[in-house]
Design a protein around this nucleic acid. Structure first.
Length: 224
DNA sequence: TTAAGTGTGTTGGACATGAC
DNA sequence: GTCATGTCCAACACACTTAA
């Protein structure tokens, strides 16, 4: 799961890898030059301001960086990978906004809605636009109700990578064989079970046998 | 060498817009 | 109306170039 600092660090890294400042990246992306300025990352009263997915999408298009690479920037905040692409390259197709499935929570809990890898199979679900490439098995999950509380609330939209490997401290979404969908923080994964918690202090880990898990997806991004 | 001009980047406030 | 985010604007700092 990405934090406010990681997202902005990733944007800084994106700019740096293209020999740009935050202002230059915003301008090249077709945004106002001040959009990514440090002064716009918090409000006057200290509240965090987040870039919209649309702004990030424009920056990714401008720099020809995939969403996967962007998330790697975020996760490796402070130690960006040397990804530099000044000209379009057929080996690195320019990512555009792709329409990905937007799955409602009720749909997600229904049987037969996902393939074995945890990717939606239904063709009649809504879609959301997000920058990605063909290699990303990414979809959006809209939270309804309080089933994912306290991590997420009703109306939050989660971007899920269904084919991503998960590691300790990753925020994950998983479905049990009983049809229950949960968002948790991965505490431990063994050959037999996963141990998760919801981030609240004092709360112990809960273990789920792997045979009771249909699929696990890693939460890349949450619109909260 | 130095002052003036220019371009770029940053900051902070105000306002616009869309969603709720 | 409130909130979150984007845009506009003025002011300022800094680096670089150019001409005196």
């Amino acid at each position: 799961m990405l934090t406010h600092d990681q997202i902005w660090a990733a944007i800084d890294a994106l700019a740096e890898n293209n020999q740009l400042t935050a202002s230059g990246l915003a301008r090249n992306s077709g945004l106002d030059p001040t959009s990514f300025n440090k002064s716009k990352r918090h409000t006057a009263n200290g509240r965090q301001r987040w870039p919209s997915t649309e702004s990030i999408a424009k920056a990714l298009r401008a720099t020809q960086v995939t969403v996967s690479e962007f998330f790697e920037f975020a996760e490796d905040a402070g130690a960006p990978k040397p990804v530099q692409r000044k000209m379009p390259d057929q080996n690195y197709p320019m990512p555009g906004n792709q329409n990905m499935p937007l799955v409602g929570f009720d749909q997600a809990g229904a049987g037969g809605f996902f393939d074995a890898g945890g990717f939606p199979t239904a063709k009649d679900c809504d879609e959301i636009s997000f920058p990605t490439d063909d290699q990303d098995k990414v979809y959006a999950l809209e939270v309804t109700g309080n089933s994912m509380h306290p991590l997420y609330c009703e109306g939050d939209v989660l971007i899920i990578a269904s084919n991503a490997s998960v590691r300790k401290d990753d925020r994950i979404v998983f479905k049990t064989t009983s049809g229950k969908i949960m968002a948790k923080i991965l505490a431990r994964k063994t050959a037999k079970q996963i141990e998760v918690h919801s981030g609240q202090t004092g709360e112990g880990d809960t273990a789920y046998p792997l045979e009771e898990i249909e699929w696990i997806g890693r939460i890349l991004w949450a619109s909260q």
